[in-house]
Design a protein around this nucleic acid. Structure first.
Lengths: 132, 132
DNA sequence: GCTTGACCTTCCCCCAACTGGAAGCTTTAA
DNA sequence: TTAAAGCTTCCAGTTGGGGGAAGGTCAAGC
């Protein structure tokens, strides 16, 4: 398989696949024309990577997870720990974003959105006390 | 005011303040020793930037918001639009993260987390059908 | 006056995880 | 034969700064 086929079948852009090779996540063979040659094995790894990335795992997490995947003597607790740490990170991020969303929603609600200059959004950003 | 004072008073790292000058968000004067000299005006702008960034606005959004802030003839509708677009972006991101969080939570729940290798998390990432 | 330490300057590289594009092969289809 | 499509490497850019080096400046203490 050339990179184009693997790209189609894995759903990952060719650029990304080359990048993953660069950083040592996959190691395709090379044909005598210099083209990368992928086996099912690499396709499978790339699909794994695609799914892990879609769950938001960092590249370094992916590296760890793949190492565990390849290790028949792994403990599921090691996998679980990686996942739990990532979940905590995601949940923290959700909390941050929700806080922003709440603040923004309130400000937007109060803004008349007409052609006058008065705007509680800018007042808030400008640090002025609300004039009530 | 030198950059250190402004940093303390605005809560922004000196590095960040220099960066904001680099990209044209603030334009402090210069003393004859080459030091940046900030007036209350710049401090105020930096505080504005800090608050806008804390709400997740991109630098380019901040640039637009500051321009509107400085424009006495603005329409609050312009401000509102920027804020609404940003809110939509944030809410989309929250939805993405929640989806990840849900998937991860389920997988983690099913993982025994012991010293055996069997792990539904890896099975899922590996793309295998769950053996139910 | 001198030294020391804090503060300031510019400059350049680094981060994540790619993406875009240029220049130049190879392969394939017409 | 030739044109298009596909592949290669390499370099630069993205966001929003952070780290740190090399060097100038300032204020305090002696």
């Amino acid at each position: 398989m050339n990179i184009g086929d693997v790209s189609t079948r894995s759903g990952l852009p060719a650029k990304t696949i080359r990048y993953y090779e660069d950083i040592g996540l996959v190691k395709p063979l090379r044909g005598k024309n210099g083209y990368r040659t992928f086996r099912e094995q690499e396709l499978h790894k790339l699909a794994f990577l695609g799914r892990a990335r879609a769950l938001g795992f960092t590249i370094e997490d992916c590296r760890r997870l793949m190492a565990l995947y390849d290790d028949d003597d792994r403990s599921s607790s090691d996998v679980k720990r990686v996942a739990e740490e990532h979940l905590a990170y995601i949940n923290a991020k959700i909390a941050d974003l929700k806080s922003m969303s709440n603040t923004l929603s309130h400000l937007i609600e109060e803004c008349s959105g007409d052609n006058r200059p008065d705007c509680p959004i800018l007042e808030d950003l400008g640090g002025q006390q609300a004039s009530n």
